[in-house]
Nucleic acid binder design. Structure first.
Lengths: 334, 334
DNA sequence: TTGTAGGCGTTATCAA
DNA sequence: TTGATAACGCCTACAA
């Protein structure tokens, strides 16, 4: 491994001079700079970022901690974060904590000294855990986290409003038995979407029917299973609101498999509007979330925290959602 | 930031003793260890990984360099890599080089001293560039790269065989005008899949018809556009082989939009068998690639290189593909 | 069993 | 304009 020492020796200068020559904006004789530059090129020198960060205490990378890595939602979030990070000259150190529990704490520890800040997405309800694990004063942006933690900047999606709009729309189409396939237990987004569902039912003068509430976990398989269970009901629903698109697509699959037509026999709506939503058949009505923008925004906010570490009052931003009507819910959609 | 110095002071021992006490397997008096441990816990100490790696010259993280981050393919690859990495106690430093060109070299430089090795996916044809940019002796595993580089371990998908099987299958169903929507220009996977297409045509006694070869870039939009172009042909194809599922799904969308039925009017086959493939309507016949396994395997191989840095002869492994027949191609499929 | 001291590769602070 | 030299936080001979 070629170090700056080798470069300095090859150029016939001291280490200090070599270091200065390699950075612009320092006082170095033009000739010296050229010589050092040439030596560096010849030796294919590139600085050891770890060593550099030890003294500058800036790593130029951020940690990205996600609950899982499966599916288009996370993939889009990562894409947004990475895009912004790359634009700012940062790298992303990835970590998924799909096992839950102590992993968050462990993941945080293992990132100490490797990242300048953190984008943490953990929609689980154990808010105090994160507070305990998070080094106070460490720049963190929370993504889709319950609002319990007010010590950090956070970003959320308008879950309640989105779900509300979706269910209102379904009710407006005349549906009176509207089922919901819930998101994962203990998940903040899931809880908010359920809350929106209940509120919209009420406003529409519809009763909340427990048997129309199916458990789920955001996976296609869960949507599939939930839809099959709904079909076994004595009184089937005429519309299904799945708490995310993955489950909606799973449900679509199950209904088709059962020989039912969507939306003629049963209408379906999803949430997130993942890229795939418009391509399934029938195209999926969904609550649009600018997923990659969510990632971009989170990264941008983190960088702003990194720039101004002090006297910032933590902000909580909610990304708006919009209802996207397509064919799967039966009204005139694309 | 609490350092080991603080812990040592709090425990009333020297830095060296503190360091030893925090690692197991060192000779430390039981009482001392407890005291240090207690102090560390109390102070919420966690070691600065950057500083540690400076002396151990192991960062316990690997670089993951991908051409892009969009779509389920990359997302699944990342998932596979991360899973294996996490199991081995490693982190993933992510970087996408969607701008091409000098970025690869820059990305590599920026990772120097931050990663122990690299998983590099770059199916573009400029093989010599990577050879120039890659520090010789640096552990690298190549993913889906052209075979030009024999200095590094590499992993590929059986592109040729998969495409071949798909087209043979279509021909076997009686199709005589089989179109292809190609992958990105200058892409190795794309070229191999085209080669498989041509070979299968030949073996099936079918002529290679240039007008049935549409350009593409692996995106849904490209598949959509290509399908529309094919429909404008005087003699339409009766089957379309898209070089990946994203384009196949885009094509599906276009055909539906044009009022055609799949597979009755036109059959469609894709490649990759992304998770979504089975959920579209009609379910997509595709060439199955164990995408996340590809990532897992790449990571595993990299770790094996990290374990045995010397005297390893670079291996080139090809991941097999299998044809998955579903309804979109017209034969009895799921 | 513990402490002292040197060094990993860089950058930053001082004199010269 | 340049060169010693001291950090940064940690680990590890070596000595005590």
């Amino acid at each position: 491994m070629v170090t700056i020492r080798d470069v300095a020796r090859a150029a016939g200068v001291s280490i200090a001079t070599a270091s200065r020559a390699l950075h612009k904006g320092h006082l170095v004789a033009p000739g010296t700079r050229e010589g050092v530059q040439a030596a560096a090129d010849r030796l294919h020198y590139s600085p050891h970022r770890g060593a550099r960060s030890l003294i500058t205490s800036r790593t130029h990378s951020i940690g990205v901690l996600l609950p899982d890595l499966y599916g288009e939602f996370f993939s889009e979030v990562i894409r947004g974060i990475d895009q912004t990070a790359q634009g700012a000259g940062y790298h992303c150190l990835l970590s998924s904590a799909r096992h839950g529990g102590p992993t968050l704490e462990a993941a945080l520890r293992s990132m100490r000294g490797r990242v300048d800040g953190l984008v943490l997405m953990s929609p689980e309800f154990n808010g105090d855990l994160s507070k305990r694990a998070l080094p106070s004063g460490f720049p963190v942006v929370l993504l889709n986290c319950p609002p319990s933690d007010t010590a950090h900047d956070s970003l959320t999606v308008a879950n309640y409003e989105g779900a509300h709009a979706m269910v209102r729309h379904l009710a407006g189409l005349g549906h009176r038995r509207i089922a919901i396939i819930k998101g994962a237990e203990g998940n903040f987004d899931a809880a908010e979407r359920l809350r929106g569902y209940r509120a919209a039912l009420k406003e529409s003068g519809l009763a909340f029917v427990p048997e129309l509430v199916m458990p789920g976990d955001f996976s296609e398989a869960a949507g599939d299973a939930a839809a099959r269970a709904l079909l076994r009901l004595d009184q089937r629903p005429t519309a299904i609101f799945a708490a995310n698109d993955g489950m909606a697509i799973g449900a679509l699959y199950a209904l088709r498999d059962a020989g039912l037509r969507v939306p003629e026999d049963i209408a379906i709506g999803g949430f997130d509007d993942i890229p795939m939503a418009r391509y399934v058949e029938p195209a999926l009505t969904s609550v649009h979330v600018a997923i990659s923008v969510l990632g971009e925004r989170a990264a941008a906010r983190l960088f702003s925290v990194l720039e101004h570490p002090a006297d910032r009052t933590p902000s909580r931003e909610t990304l708006p959602t919009t209802l996207v009507v397509r064919r799967s819910c039966g009204s005139r959609g694309t």
